[in-house]
Design a binder for these strands. Structure first.
Lengths: 234, 234
DNA sequence: CGTGTGATTGACGCCTGTCAACGTCTGTGG
DNA sequence: CCACAGACGTTGACAGGCGTCAATCACACG
């Protein structure tokens, strides 16, 4: 076993009590440590491609990954983001299907690769871990179903306000109230499911309404209750 | 143990090799048989309500259940349907969250109730069963994510054509090419995510285009390739 | 300094949601 | 047997949200 830099970062990572691997035994942790492989990935690099078979899943040590599907005319639909502590790609590994999404780094990241066999071995062997992973899958399923309802019933304006609030919940604000995640207008439109121009126009309107402030790609949230009202979020 | 009619129908049910319970041992099957409880449910009855805690999940012996979320102004968004052999409610049981959907019978059904404790016990004890259930959750997750992309990027017309094809894949056609499932126009609109009037108008157009034929709620699919083209389905 | 990517703005028009009116069918109760 | 209510289906009118196309600007980078 090489004592590579990844190993170190993973030990920090899995020491967290809310980690998905928290219920592994010492012995199982050792197996994981032997099999896994941690590496840096630069912004823009693709971790896995939609439609490909993937040989394992990845635990995010740090950085941000966007998970998206490619739809009509190649337009991206961003399904979710993964950040520190998140596990990606396990859906395809466990269902035995091809990857149904693409994962691309949008902020430099360190990822630990976990071979499919190792993951499946642990699922079958450790009932607690299995339950934790199941809960993760079920939680994601609940979120996806909620988003179907939103996207089917809300206007673009409502969805954009809601997305800004989601980004705040998931990535937080810095001490100046700016969202800690910065996205291009196009990426925002690929979450909301609309045209880039619509996002630009609506952001301008939100700014006029005093809901937000814009500094390039950085977005400052000025009026959270106002955004909730605009987005019909309760 | 009472030898109730439900018991009988479940034995027929679980004998199927593609059943979710196929990897249970004889002993585990016995535990399941002791704990479960099978009952008939009439059309219109609600199995569980969004937002409520549910005490177990249900295996569908026969009948059809619609699974939906309630959005703005009480408008339903149908997420999926469950039919013979499907397991519903397990998401909330396993994730420990409140039900995120409502389940309502749309064709008279027999359902087997499986207590949460029993399900969780089996998941932790039997790795193979755990994997099967995980695969089910992951498969549903993949489907939900695919639908997010569709609903975000496709027009109402495309989505309606696609929905008709999905209904064909899931419920089949009778010997006259009619969809075996009959839905109200409003239910169709609650799948597609549009207004009832839009569904009515588009169905009329599809009829004019020779894609379908309408006999009240029964829909005959005349031109599958045409529908695929209309729905951008590949 | 040229090039490329991303951001912005305006013009235009169609898709689609909303409102309203009316038709159809079924079941119920007088 | 008829009247009525209620659920569902259908059609038309209308407006506005939002997508598309095109031109221009801003900015970073080799």
């Amino acid at each position: 076993m090489k004592n590579n830099p990844g190993r170190t970062s993973c030990e920090n990572c899995s020491s967290k009590s809310n980690n998905i691997f928290r219920n592994l035994s010492a012995e199982e942790h050792e197996i994981l440590a032997l099999d896994k492989n941690c590496e840096p990935h630069k912004k823009g690099s693709v971790i896995y491609h939609e439609g490909n078979r993937i040989s394992g899943c990845y635990c995010v040590s740090n950085g941000i990954i966007k998970i998206y599907k490619t739809g009509i005319d190649g337009k991206e639909q961003i399904i979710t983001f993964a950040k520190t502590g998140d596990l990606i790609g396990f859906r395809s590994v466990l269902s035995g299907e091809l990857a149904c999404t693409t994962a691309k780094v949008i902020e430099d990241a360190h990822l630990c690769f976990i071979p499919a066999d190792t993951l499946i071995y642990l699922v079958k062997k450790n009932g607690e871990f299995s339950m934790d992973l199941m809960q993760l899958a079920c939680k994601e399923l609940g979120e996806s179903n909620a988003y179907i309802t939103d996207i089917a019933q809300k206007t673009v304006r409502e969805r954009l306000a809601e997305v800004l609030l989601h980004l705040r919940d998931n990535f937080g604000l810095d001490d100046e109230q700016f969202l800690k995640i910065t996205l291009t207008r196009e990426e925002l439109s690929n979450i909301v499911g609309t045209a880039t121009e619509s996002v630009i126009r609506l952001l301008s309107e939100f700014k006029s309404d005093g809901l937000i402030e814009l500094h390039g790609r950085r977005i400052k949230l000025l009026n959270i209750p106002g955004l909730k009202k605009t987005g019909n979020v309760f």
